[in-house]
């Protein structure tokens, strides 16, 4: 059985002068699924998205979106895709409605259809009240929604979301996640880039991790978590003298050892979601009060440390030079 690949990229290469943004990246996304492209700033995520959305021509490799070559058939690709950039690309002087209508007219929907579509999307993104205000008066979250709405005017089959939640506060992030989920429910194929494992885990069917323009891992969220370690439970007892007792309880609920990661904060790796409830129950039974109790996925830094042996933020110029030579 062959899977129906909507996005397939092989060996994408792109250099900007001395900077090797992409050094042979492969990506593939099956119809109706979400691929999360995870990587730190400067890893090449945006460059990959710009190539797949026909904004950039690759120096090497090839890519097809919706069955069309992004270089030779760029026009056809543009009819298939919707792009939401890292920086909300809406026209600030136009109202939300004018922004969406303009895109509709440019997509040849015709004036009447463009109006209907704009109204639909404004409603759907909860922007109807602000529809006739210039976009410059919108909050960051509203701008993101308008930007996303603009990319959906033409009912694209394939949607590129370049760091859709960077800079949004956590509650707005959840909203954006729900939007992405409903797009996928409606049958869209989504490629989303992110700096958060948590986000990729929440949305993606598969995750590709890239670093310095190369793919360093590709797996399902569960597979990736098996490699980089699953969730960590962090506990801070209010009474520091009971740290040892707390550690003993933590060791019981998990198979790992409890480390004191910060002063008075214990961390223990946990493999299942019941661990949290079990911990709470046992701490309560022992009469240990806590000021902090939380469950974390590894941060991007931790993911990268596990995969590459160095942190994501380290500027590793030596490796780049060696590759260049």
């Amino acid at each position: 059985m062959t899977t129906d690949l909507v996005i397939e990229a092989e060996g994408l290469i792109k250099h900007f002068g001395e900077t090797k943004a992409l050094q042979g990246v492969d990506l593939s996304v099956a119809r109706g699924t979400v691929l999360g492209v995870l990587g730190p700033n400067g890893a090449g995520k945006t460059t990959a998205v710009r190539i797949l959305s026909t904004l950039l021509v690759p120096d090497g490799g090839r890519a097809r979106v919706g069955g069309f070559d992004v270089v030779k058939d760029a026009e056809r690709v543009r009819q298939t895709i919707g792009l939401t950039g890292q920086y909300a690309s809406v026209d600030e002087d136009l109202t939300g409605r004018q922004n969406l209508q303009l895109i509709g007219v440019l997509l040849d929907l015709g004036k009447a259809q463009a109006k209907v579509r704009a109204a639909e999307l404004l409603e759907w993104f909860d922007l109807t009240d602000a529809a006739d205000r210039p976009a410059k008066t919108y909050s960051g979250g509203m701008r993101r929604r308008l930007d996303l709405a603009a990319s959906l005017v033409g009912r694209p089959d394939v949607i590129f979301l370049d760091e859709p939640t960077t800079g949004l506060d956590p509650s707005k992030r959840e909203d954006m996640w729900n939007v992405v989920r409903s797009l996928v429910d409606d049958g869209s194929t989504v490629l989303l880039t992110t700096q958060y494992l948590e986000e990729a885990d929440a949305l993606a069917d598969e995750i590709t991790v890239i670093d310095h323009g190369r793919v360093i891992a590709h797996d399902t969220p569960d597979g990736l978590k098996r490699i980089v370690g699953g969730q960590t439970l962090e506990v801070r007892p209010s009474d520091l003298s009971r740290l040892e007792e707390t550690a003993a309880i933590l060791r019981q609920v998990s198979d790992g050892r409890a480390d004191e990661i910060r002063k008075g904060v214990l961390a223990v790796p946990v493999s299942n979601d019941e661990a949290m409830t079990a911990t709470v129950a046992r701490l309560a039974a022992a009469g240990i009060a806590v000021t902090e109790l939380s469950l974390h996925l590894p941060s991007l830094d931790e993911v990268f440390f596990t995969l590459t042996g160095r942190t994501a933020s380290e500027d590793d110029t030596t490796t780049t030079k060696e590759v260049a030579a």
């Binding site: 710009r50 959305s53 026909t54 904004l55 026009e75 056809r76 543009r78 009819q79 895709i81 919707g82 792009l83 950039g85 920086y87 909300a88 690309s89 809406v90 026209d91 600030e92 895109i103 440019l106 997509l107 603009a150 990319s151 033409g154």
Partner: peptide
């Protein structure tokens, strides 16, 4: 501001 990225990703003549 990136508004041209949006235009460039649409199926319209690039010079439009």
């Amino acid at each position: 501001k990136g508004i041209f990225d949006r235009f460039r990703s649409l199926p319209i003549p690039r010079s439009a």
